[in-house]
Design a protein around this nucleic acid. Structure first.
Lengths: 108, 108
DNA sequence: CAAACAAGTTTGTATCACAGACTATTTTAT
DNA sequence: ATAAAATAGTCTGTGATACAAACTTGTTTG
């Protein structure tokens, strides 16, 4: 493949990057959930280093596009919010990673 | 390395992602310039698919942080704007690529 | 009972990306 | 020669976004 074609492929890969996942705060959340399957709000706060407000809004955004499922329950009378990666979310994450790999590896 | 440590490294790598380069439009510009060293405005417009306004503002942003050098000259009486990647820009791009690779590869 | 704490949510602010309108110059057509 | 169209960019208005601080609701502790 010519250098020119290679870069055309990179441009396409960049265009295909899912902006929802591209945001670093959400990339962190997705990366965690991809591994642990499900985690609670406080755990994610600690591991991602996000503030409550920030995590809350990103969580909502991920829920709106159906990448995560948010389950609110009470444990010991305290509210606990659990996040789980959906099938759709898992696929989107894999797709993002694939496109990003294409984007940054082709220039090597 | 434990799974937990691995994810801590990913989080750090994500934190280190240069937001200037992270924006897809600028990632495209940087990717091109990394290969061709220098290109004119119209060429970049065509290859990146960005509109004039968009390319102009991203160009300015990249210039402000000294990642690209903008050289305006006249060719055949017409103004031509050339962009060149600076040393700093090249390093930042390599650093970005390194961190992104860490971020997306550690979960594999 | 009041104060402190815990778990989130809402709100205000500042930034940002994007496209379309605008400017200035040059070329082409009448 | 002048008007229209093209070229090369810049400027501006709008809508979206990220972030942190303030607020809310309920619970525990002194």
């Amino acid at each position: 493949m010519s250098q020119r074609d290679k870069r055309q492929d990179e441009m396409k890969a960049i265009d295909r990057l899912d902006r929802i996942i591209h945001e670093p705060a959400r990339l962190k959340i997705m990366t965690h959930l991809y591994v642990v399957e499900s985690g609670d709000f406080v755990y994610l706060m600690r591991t991602t280093g996000l503030t409550r407000g920030n995590l809350s809004s990103h969580m909502t955004k991920l829920e709106e596009v159906d990448y995560v499922e948010v389950i609110k329950e009470f444990v010991d009378r305290k509210p606990v919010t659990m996040l789980r990666l959906t099938k759709k979310g898992r696929n989107a994450f894999l797709e993002y990673r694939k496109n990003m790999a294409l984007a940054i590896e082709a220039t090597k």
